[in-house]
Design a protein around this nucleic acid. Structure first.
Length: 531
RNA sequence: GCCCCUGUAGCUCAAUGGAUAGAGCCACGGACUUCUAAGCCGUUGAUGUAGGUUCGAUUCCUACCGGGGGCACCA
């Protein structure tokens, strides 16, 4: 793994002026600002009552004297920024560091729960957004050194299953040519009607006379929906390691957990119901006055189990479950699981449009667009990239027209195209390349230097994303790397008469290719050899 | 009504208190024709409104305006 340059500069600065104040060291976005920049002089100016530029100049001079092997130059610029320019020799050393295989860390176990849609209909684009997000978070945790379990929680218990059951029985009766009125609070959409017809084909009218007919129908429905949803999940390139069913949890774990909470004094009785009551504000019913536990009781049991098994726990929730978050943190407190080890990622609403037309995602007949349809139309790679390139918390619009008709303009293809080009060059040259023995010192042009720097930025890009799971940093990095390579490609012919230079450039192309593959793997998108 | 999120270019989105607010799409203009034109170069264009804190605010605070979500003995 490449040494973290940012941290090094931070350490140098801390040695120079003390680490007692907060300051930033960042990769510069603009080339004119050097490779890294720091605001330390601006921050200190107030304390020292001196002009920031003066302080910056003093620090710059000292660092230049001491660390000329690292920095080509250190500049103090108005209003008082310090800009660091890395020396080419240092860059080459960093490349060699980057080539070393990462030390395998063992941070313990982590689990990521995501999608977990209600089993009452097919996945829609909204549920499906959490797929790529959760999957990439799992990839990032694994990259860090966790042993990761991807978990899917089936909300297959409680009142909503009763509603589903009633709805299905209605459609089944209709399929058997019996009179039936649609249940008042039944689930809309023709999807369930279709499953009822399939059930009729399978069972005939047998269920009508079976005492357990309705239960059997519900189980059949549940199985059918589950099969469909996992097919969709698979088409996104996602595999779950574990599926947890609320119904089973409810039977086996919930009572014990409630007893435990009772002992901890976290339950209250009021109006015949039992409430989880960590604080007055967060009071929530866990057992109804008729004695049946509700979803939150099962959720507590589920989280207790996750806390016991894991060192780090991630939940990916839709924004409509935001109110749930403080309660879950209270649950973590209750079982002595540090809040820092529980991360709840919220993703925003996805709205669909087709050109100018906004498509309502209600489940009413006719305007229900399933995730399956969208993924089929645009492909798993584009779907994932599109879902990941926005900050998870922001709401987003998915333009079907753009995704379907102009899918080639999707940035994912730009990244893949860059990879295909690297592959093309390596295919043509047929040379054997040993990255460790490559002579990086021959690479001196701007496009070459820029590409080396962009490759080295990989570690920082991933580290930054790991700290907050803002997945857009990864897609941005992938795009930037592809762009930097493309510029290199446009200006620099790799295979030439000059054998030594060709060898060096081939090494750079191979390193680019490897890095594109690494970032693609983290994003869960393919890296084609040809396009 | 109360709470949370949100408002950036014509459109879809970035910006982890910093320097000239970045991309892509759309539009217009251009170059090359040796490793892939799904590419490259250029041009136009934006922080909802009004205050405040700060050396510095898209970012933090207050109010207002617009959009979304929550406030169930549902999940």
């Amino acid at each position: 793994m490449s040494q973290n340059i940012q941290k090094m500069i931070r350490d140098i600065l801390a040695q120079e002026v003390g680490s007692d104040i907060l300051f930033s060291v960042e990769r510069s976005e603009i080339e004119a600002h050097g490779d890294y920049s720091s605001n330390i002089a601006l921050v200190r100016a107030k304390l020292e009552r001196k002009a920031p530029l003066e302080i910056a100049a003093t620090i710059a001079t000292r660092i230049k004297e001491k660390h000329s092997n690292i920095f080509h130059s250190v500049e103090a610029v108005p209003p008082g920024f310090l800009n660091f320019y890395l020396a080419p020799e240092f860059l080459r050393r960093e490349i060699l560091e980057f080539l070393k295989p990462a030390k395998k860390k063992n941070l313990g176990r982590a689990c990521v729960e995501f999608i977990s849609a209600n089993p009452t209909g097919p996945l829609h684009v909204g549920n499906a957004r959490s797929g790529p997000i959760g999957d990439v978070i799992a990839n990032l945790l694994a990259w860090q050194g966790y042993k990761v379990t991807r978990e899917y929680y089936h909300n297959d218990a409680g009142a909503q299953m009763g509603k589903l059951s009633a709805t299905m029985w209605h459609w089944y009766l209709r399929a058997c040519n019996k009179k039936s009125e649609f249940p008042e609070d039944g689930y809309p959409g023709d999807h369930l009607e279709i499953i009822a017809r399939t059930a009729k084909k399978k069972f005939g009218t047998k269920l009508l006379t079976d005492k357990k007919g309705q239960t059997k129908l519900t189980e059949f429905t549940f199985g059918a929906l589950e099969k469909e949803n996992f097919a969709t999940i698979k088409s996104m390139g996602i595999r779950f390691d574990r599926v947890v069913r609320e119904s089973i949890l409810a039977k086996t774990k919930t009572k014990k957990v409630l007893v435990e909470l009772e002992h901890k004094g976290l339950l209250k009785k009021r109006e015949g119901a039992i409430w989880f009551s960590p604080t007055e504000e967060l009071e929530t019913v866990v057992v109804k006055s008729d004695g049946t536990p509700i979803y939150f009781a099962n959720d507590i049991a589920y989280h207790k189990e996750k806390f016991a098994k894991n060192d780090f726990v991630v939940d990916v929730f839709g924004e409509n479950h935001e109110a749930h978050i403080p309660k879950l943190y209270a649950v973590a407190d209750a079982f002595g699981f540090s809040r820092e080890r529980l991360k709840i990622v919220v993703y925003g609403h996805v709205s669909l449009k087709e050109g100018e037309k906004v498509i309502a995602m209600s489940k009413r007949k006719g305007n229900f667009v399933t995730a399956e349809e969208v993924i089929k139309a645009v492909g798993a790679d584009a779907f994932r990239f599109f879902m990941l390139e926005h900050a998870p918390r922001s709401s987003m619009q998915f333009d079907l027209k753009l995704a379907k008709a102009k899918s080639r303009e999707n940035p994912v293809y730009y990244v893949q195209y860059a990879h295909a080009r690297t592959s093309g060059i390596l295919r043509k040259s047929k040379a054997k390349i040993d990255l460790k023995k490559a002579d990086w010192s021959l690479l001196e042009t701007m496009p070459e230097i820029r590409l080396m720097k962009q490759i080295l930025a990989f570690t920082e890009a991933v580290d930054e994303t790991v700290s907050d799971f803002e997945t857009q940093w990864l897609t941005r990095y992938a795009y930037e790397l592809a762009r930097t390579f493309t510029h290199f490609y446009e200006t620099t012919h790799v295979i030439s008469e000059d054998k030594k230079l060709t060898a060096s450039r081939l090494a750079l192309v191979l390193l680019t290719r490897n890095t594109l593959q690494r970032i693609s793997k983290l994003l869960g998108i393919s890296a084609p050899e040809k396009m």
